[in-house]
Amino acid sequence: MSVAEATGRVHALRGGMLGSELKLILTRRRNLVGLAIMCLVPIVMGVVLWATGSRDGGGPPFLSSIFGNGLFLILTNLLVQMTMFLPMAMSILAGDAIAGEANVGTLRYLLTVPVSRRRLLFTKFGALVTAAFSGVFLVCLVAGTTGVILFGTGDMLNLSGGTLPFAEALGRIALVAVYVSISLTAVCAIGLFASTLTEQPIGAAIATFIWVLLDQIFGGLSAMDWLHPFLLSHYWSDWAGLLRDPVDWGGVGGGLIAPLVYVAVFLSAAWARFTTADITS
C-alpha cells in the first residue's frame, strides 16, 4: 500500500464514512464476482426447473409450487443460498472489514483522520448490514423476475392451505427478505469480531464461515437438541410464519431475537477488542 493510496483512502473517508465503506465493498472485483454468482443461481435453478418440467421432485420445500407462481422461486432460492452462499459472502465481507485494512497498511492512516475507533467500527458494521440487505434484495429481485417470466403470476399457496393474490404474496416475500437480511447481520457481527483478532482477512473469513458451518451441523444433530435454541441457524427458516394466514407474528418475532442477541454480544466483543488493541499497521 503506497502513501498515495493510503492518502486517497483517508480523503474518501473524510467525504463520508458510510459512503466510503460501501464504495470500498462495491468496487472490489471479488465482491462483484461473488454477487454475480449468487444472482446466477436462481436463474440457473429456474431455467433447469422450467426445462425439465418436473413438478413432483424432491429437494427444498416449495419446489413443486414454483410451477403455480414464480414467486416461489424466491423462497426456494433463499432456502438454498442460506445454507452456504449468503453466509459465505457475509463471512468474506466481514472478515475483510478490519483485518483487510490492517493487512494492506491503511488502518493506522484511517485512525488519523481523525476518527474514533468506535465510530470506525460501527460504520463498518453499518456498511456490512447495508450490504447484507442490498445483496439479499438483489438476489430476490433476480429470482422473482426469473420466476415470473418462467412460471407466471398466479395465486400463491400459503402454509395454511389457502392462497394469496400476487400483490399480497409479493409483500409477504418482501418481509421474508427482511427477515433473512436481519439473520445475516449476526454473521456480520461474528465476522467483524473475528476481523479484529487478526491482520489476515482470509483467516477471519474462514473462521467465521467455519462457525456458520458448525452451527448448521450441530443444528442437524438430534442428539444435541438441548443446544438448538442457542444456534443461529435454528431460526433461519422461521420466516415461514410470514406465509401463514393469519401471519404468525409470534413465531417470526421469536426468530428475530437470536440474531439480535448475537449482534449485541459479538459487536460488543469487537468493540472491546478493537478499542484496546495496538494498531501497528
Rank of each mutant, 00 (worst) to 15 (best):
P259C: 07
G250W: 00
I25V: 07
A131R: 02
V180A: 13
F218N: 13
G135A: 10
G220Q: 06
I202Y: 07
L231T: 12
T7Y: 10
A269C: 02
M84S: 15
L35M: 13
T280I: 08
K124R: 15
L157S: 09
G8Y: 05
M84D: 13
T83V: 14
K124L: 10
N69T: 10
W239N: 07
R119P: 09
A36S: 07
G152R: 04
G135D: 02
A89Q: 15
I217S: 11
I173W: 01
K124A: 07
S183D: 13
S160M: 09
S65K: 05
S64C: 11
T280L: 10
T83H: 09
A272F: 11
V80G: 04
N31K: 07
G53Y: 00
V247D: 02
T112V: 09
W271M: 14
L120W: 00
L267R: 03
D225P: 09
P259K: 00
V80C: 07
M45L: 15
L110R: 04
L197C: 15
R117A: 09
L213K: 02
I149E: 06
A264W: 01
V115Q: 06
L110G: 05
L24G: 02
I173G: 06
T208P: 02
G95E: 03
G147M: 00
L93A: 14
V44R: 06
M1V: 08
I92M: 10
M84L: 15
L242H: 13
P201C: 08
F137S: 01
A36E: 03
A240S: 12
G19A: 12
F209P: 09
R14G: 15
D225E: 13
F151A: 12
N69W: 08
V247E: 03
G154M: 02
A51C: 06
M1R: 10
L256A: 14
G161C: 12
N77S: 14
D215C: 12
G34I: 12
D248H: 12
